[in-house]
């Protein structure tokens, strides 16, 4: 199933889901906008890290 859906479909979904999960942990007295963008940045960094890992393991594809 995962092979059927292209990465451009589920990656944004994963990032958004991650953001919603992580955001409440990052409150520290910040308004929701800031905690959500911070969570988005965190998840985005994770995704970027995953992408780099994919390059390391499979450099021919890039």
């Amino acid at each position: 199933m995962a092979r059927m859906l292209p990465i451009r479909f589920w990656l944004p979904l994963l990032i958004v889901a991650g953001t919603l999960v992580v955001a409440p942990q990052l409150r520290h007295g910040q308004p929701p906008l800031q905690s959500h963008t911070l969570a988005l940045l965190l998840c985005g960094t994770l995704a970027l890290s995953g992408y780099l890992f994919a390059v390391i393991v499979n450099p021919e594809k890039f």
Partner: peptide
Amino acid sequence: LTVLLAVLTQ
């Protein structure tokens, strides 16, 4: 080289 650059970036 791409691998090495990617790992440094990572």
